[in-house]
Design a protein around this nucleic acid. Structure first.
Lengths: 172, 172
DNA sequence: ATTCTAACGCAAACATTTTGCGTTAGCTGC
DNA sequence: GCAGCTAACGCAAAATGTTTGCGTTAGAAT
């Protein structure tokens, strides 16, 4: 079923993907889809969340800053493209059940945990994951979803560097 | 028309508001709605964006920190409630035309501009609006839309204070 | 005053969503 | 094994929502 959705997403504009279409492609009847997912929104959100799930640990560049920049850049590149934005929209649009939006947050934190753990193992003193989410990932998401002037890819590294720079200066 | 939508939103669960219902309430035919807005999503996003438009300047508490905290708290309180979250979802869900999401960003920046200008007039040295958006509003939005553990109202002030504290410490 | 345009109502065609009913596959407990 | 149970599905009809063509009208422009 997820495969059917992904296939359609790659060949049709997002707006005219319908439940009957997906059902036909997947070889089931529409009623099956409606009974299992409720409506198109939920299904798309489910597929999008699935697609956001990281399949490999973030690349190890040797330094905390490098790892974070690489991760943030890759994320921004993927999610600021029309396809990625559509994923995020589908995820946000879906309401309570199963909470695809929550899954998205969880995946991000999982990846950041790995980066932070590696940094600690190296003897670096990384910020807590929550701080990275707040100061790097959240501004990126905001930029992707709301900003009038879209983010540039370089903004990912800028956010990471700004966060680490602030961290390097101990409070008075 | 907007009035009809708002009326229905206050008496029905978000999920069973339909175009024919709105049309009937507004005393028009459904085709009028479809021709003017395209679909339900666009109309809801339009109404939500309208509702987000600030009607009064942010309250003047006498200090930059006070103004920012008050604004952020009020925003968070409004948008973390189920109704507010629904607004944000509707706005994000709508795609290109008219860009209700962009309007949302614009409104926020307008209000922050006022706060910043007031602070400058007082002789304070406020951060640029972009920085406030990135470090205060974006994390709040992320928390509202994605976070597994929802934000507390006190997080608004915490974000403001953290930003200002970082600012008070000049870079080396 | 006439013409033009944009918006609307109406209603029919069309598509999607919902639902009831019968069937089947996979279990569970005997 | 084997009867009985449950959950999921297909099918098809009904309900609902969406799109479209056509005729009308109100207001602006000439």
């Amino acid at each position: 079923m997820h495969a059917a959705v992904r296939a359609l997403q790659s060949e049709r504009p997002r707006h005219d993907i319908t439940v009957p279409l997906i059902a036909q492609r997947a070889g089931v009847t529409p009623s099956t889809v409606y009974r299992r997912w409720g409506d198109l929104t939920e299904l798309l959100a489910d597929v999008a969340a699935e697609r956001l799930r990281p399949d490999t640990p973030p690349t190890d560049t040797g330094t905390l800053g490098g790892d974070l920049s690489a991760y943030a850049e890759q994320y921004l590149e993927e999610m600021s493209a029309p396809t990625g934005r559509a994923f995020l929209r589908d995820i946000v649009a879906s309401a309570a059940p199963g909470r695809p939006a929550g899954r998205c947050d969880t995946y991000i934190r999982e990846q950041l945990e790995i980066i932070v753990a590696r940094a600690q193992a190296r003897g670096e003193r990384p910020p807590p994951v929550g701080e990275i989410v707040e100061q790097v990932m959240a501004p990126m998401m905001y930029g992707i979803l709301f900003a009038v002037t879209p983010l540039a890819l370089t903004d990912a590294a800028r956010l990471v560097e700004a966060m680490l720079a602030r961290r390097a200066v101990p409070a008075i």
